[in-house]
Amino acid sequence: MSTLIRPPPVDKSQSAIENLLELTQLSDIDPDLFTNTRPLWHPPGARGIYGGAAIAQTLSAAQRTIPSDFTIHSMHCYFVLAGNADIPIIYHVERVRSGKSFATRTVQARQRGKVIFTTTMSFVKQDSGGEKKVEHSTIMPDVPAPVEGMDDLDAGGTSTQPFQSQRIEILNNDSPNPHEKKCRQWIKARGRISPAGGHEAHLSALAYMSDSYFVGTIARVHKLWRYSALRKSKTKSSIDEEMLKKLLAMDEDQLKRLKFVDEADLQHIRRLKNGEDLTSGTKPEIGMMVSLDHTIYFHNPRNFRADEWMFTEMETPWTGDGRGLVLQKMFSRDGTLIASCVQEGLVRLRQPGESKL
């Protein structure tokens, strides 16, 4: 059973992302215990649940334990074990400190008694910085505006994702240096987040979406093949095998219209369609790619809407020793920097001798 308690009917007054991230407080056991109200998404081919769900639900749980005039300003997360979508998650909030200006919470997500995810968060009291402040902010780059009605995630025509995404061409994509490239996209929650959700719902939605394509930046700037090659392997790909089947069914014109498919992907798809042997003479292929940790710094936590277009820009300063680091800046559409994120991920190539179907 994927939830501890039978899920209630979907609340039509709430957006899809609010319903997905809803928590049930286990007050009869402990007021600081929570569980997922609804089943969580396990991306096809991934090792476990979508990481953004754990990030967002731990934030939601912590927000339920702090005064209304305190707001999250940073959270530091570690992915410990893959989450099983078929088992309920128990979130335990520990009230580490509740001061006059700052409050600290840790949250552990557990399944079958084992910690699968842990985070420490810091909250700050509103307007505690004083009347005079030191202020500056990086400027959002000049990029094409999002196109209403277009959704890169909806390649199959029936996307079940609670958010929309539109990719923009990679900046400096022809550079021989991966660290000079920047992967960019517009993103927003589907529908309208309800007034009852307050600013907390928008923050949880942002946390959920911050994990979208994040560690995948490394594969994109190195132009590595990012889709499962329908192979037999002891390690699962972090990419959707069902998506590969859809891509192989599309013609050239359809593929070129997909912003998330770059020229390196097109070349690989052509070879697959031609029945070529991809075990020799081809570019390296991702064997395993998973997130290890995730940090978010919230800069303007009450001055944005997650159901309106937000611009994100991702770059990777370093990759090596089977790991990679990615940095992300998130802006509201008016150019306000609303969050900065950092993620380190495990990035392993498929090794010689790993068989394919």
Rank of each mutant, 00 (worst) to 15 (best):
A46Q: 09
A249Q: 14
Q14W: 15
S355M: 14
I29T: 11
Q161M: 15
L20C: 13
G320L: 08
E242Y: 10
E252M: 04
I87F: 03
P44D: 08
H76T: 00
R302N: 14
Q161I: 08
E180L: 09
D127H: 06
K234I: 14
S340F: 02
N19V: 02
F304A: 04
W309A: 05
T282K: 02
D28H: 05
W309M: 10
P44N: 13
E18R: 04
P67W: 01
R333H: 11
E180P: 07
G216F: 00
D321C: 12
E313G: 09
R112Q: 15
T71M: 15
I87S: 11
P88V: 06
G197R: 11
T58V: 15
V96I: 15
K125P: 00
A196K: 05
E313R: 01
S228Y: 12
A53D: 06
C183K: 05
I187S: 07
P7T: 01
L266R: 12
S340Q: 03
D174I: 12
I338N: 00
W309S: 12
Q108G: 11
A205F: 07
M314S: 13
L272D: 02
Y208F: 09
L255E: 04
M150F: 08
E242C: 05
G335E: 11
R348V: 14
N172I: 00
V147P: 02
H179C: 07
S194E: 11
M289V: 10
Q25D: 11
G156H: 08
A196T: 02
L81N: 13
K256E: 15
K246D: 13
T160E: 11
H73M: 12
H268I: 02
